[in-house]
């Protein structure tokens, strides 16, 4: 009984990790330049709204 329970729980956890990994890989594989540009634009606009420096302004090495 204990062995079966361990197998089921570890199987479920492994399956969950598998789904997360495969889902994440699919999302990463289908990421396009347009999506990246949209995301960057959203981040830039949010920074401007909050009165912060645009992290994607090219003269900025990066933002913390």
């Amino acid at each position: 009984m204990r062995r079966a329970l361990t197998l089921v729980v570890s199987g479920l956890v492994a399956a969950l990790l598998g789904i997360l990994a495969l889902g994440g890989l699919s999302a990463a594989a289908t990421a396009t330049d347009e999506e990246a540009a949209t995301e960057a634009k959203n981040v830039s606009e949010a920074a401007k709204r909050n009165g912060k420096q645009d992290p994607y302004a090219p003269e900025v090495y990066g933002n913390r």
């Binding site: 197998l7 570890s10 199987g11 956890v13 492994a14 969950l16 990790l17 598998g18 997360l20 990994a21 889902g23 994440g24 890989l25 999302a27 990463a28 594989a29 990421a31 396009t32 330049d33 999506e35 990246a36």
Partner: peptide
């Protein structure tokens, strides 16, 4: 099963390293 789960753990936690950091 445990080893398979552990093998998947780094990828599941950081999937956006794939495909050149998601493009």
């Amino acid at each position: 099963v445990v080893l398979a789960g552990l093998l998947l753990l780094p990828v599941a936690v950081l999937p956006d390293l794939a495909f050149g950091g998601a493009g």
